[in-house]
Design a protein around this nucleic acid. Structure first.
Lengths: 214, 214
DNA sequence: GCTCGCTTGTGAACTTGCGCACTAGCGTTC
DNA sequence: GAACGCTAGTGCGCAAGTTCACAAGCGAGC
């Protein structure tokens, strides 16, 4: 119970932010306690799954009553590492990179854009949403100096692996990849991807194979 | 073998587009055949997994040789339903919706933007990237008329469920949700989500819990 | 035409994740 | 203060997915 080293399953980790958002909504509505059933409904999952997921964080519920919304919110924020900011570096200052830098919700949610990088020297020196664009050759020294832990890759596919390598070299431990390609990182570096075309193609499959029976 | 109704596991379906992209690269490089090992390396997965995944499509490989790149590419495109276009409707003509409509790669990959919808009457009638913005009240008749099978939700969280309901009512069978909220759809409708904040929070967790041991 | 190397296809063990169903235990009511 | 209703926490069987390891079988070379 007291050891912080409990291993939390990946599937659970991926759901925690969903619970977090639900809890934030409940706080807004000034609802003091919530049952696993209610939370499950809000998060679109099974109630038993909610209880099991939350039990990995500790025993924060009260039997017969439910979970204290604010307390659980705090504990979950702490577990997710959201009690402090995570400066991010964005590699690629094209359409997507600029859009991400301009998107205010980034900073607002505790992920301020600390630096922007591009390999195009014509873009270096410009400012996007108040953040200066640096050359990709300077990723390592700058990202390290700014304490960047999370890197975002918004380059074309062809430049993505190089960007990832440079981010890793800069000591970045987590990468979010928007480039439509597979990139590889050393063990110990977390990697997640967001790929629009891929999502649409998956939906295309299910659309193509819709139940012909009904 | 011959029955097309084989059930393909979800996890496999999600990987098919990755293989597809790898195959497209191989075609560009004029490489005629590929082994499961090579394909696995390109897709960033295990070779046995590649073979099992591909076996769900049929026996398209040749022992001792590998897979014929072009033939496999064709079969996979067919299975994914990518041999024809899938007109999509985008709900929400704000920052994200506009960006998506402007993003050419959409049409280019066989997912032309057939219609744009917004609940703001001031936006109705305007054209974005050549596509007229309609009112969300007209989703049902228009989407049906245009043969839209896939809907994209790019609204604020508060409007997302309503958008989903209207898309479903219009007969849309697949939805890609960009709104940072959980939405529910009836059985038989496919739903996938892309959530930036969620991805960053997941990375934040792993960043916060990085191995203190090494 | 036989042998040998190579690669697919797949049975089977194993791992992870899910969800039921039950127990533990808090708070309230009488 | 005893009994009851309600909800968290969890053990366990089941399902899905992954990986290993091997048999099947193609093609090249002699």
């Amino acid at each position: 119970m007291s050891d912080r080293a409990r291993h939390i399953p990946e599937a659970t980790v991926a759901r925690l932010p969903v619970y977090l958002r639900s809890l934030a909504e409940l706080v807004d509505e000034k609802i003091p306690t919530v049952s696993s059933e209610r939370l499950a409904e809000m998060a679109g999952v099974n109630a038993a799954k909610v209880r099991k997921d939350l039990s990995y964080l500790g025993s924060y519920g009260t039997r017969g009553v439910g979970y204290d919304v604010e307390y659980l919110l705090f504990q979950m924020s702490r577990e997710l590492g959201l009690t402090h900011d995570w400066p991010v570096a964005i590699v690629g200052a094209g359409n997507l990179g600029s859009a991400l830098a301009n998107y205010g919700g980034f900073t607002q949610r505790g992920f301020p854009v600390a630096a922007l990088f591009d390999s195009d020297k014509a873009k270096v020196g410009k400012r996007i949403h108040g953040v200066e664009v640096h050359h990709t050759d300077d990723i390592a020294p700058l990202a390290e100096e700014l304490g960047v832990g999370i890197g975002v890759i918004a380059t074309p596919a062809s430049a993505a692996q190089d960007a990832a390598d440079k981010l890793v070299q800069a000591g970045v431990g987590s990468i979010l990849n928007f480039a439509p390609t597979v990139i590889s990182v050393p063990d110990g570096v977390s990697l997640r991807k967001v790929d629009l075309a891929l999502e649409l193609q998956i939906l295309s499959f299910y659309q193509e194979h819709r139940d012909v029976g009904s």
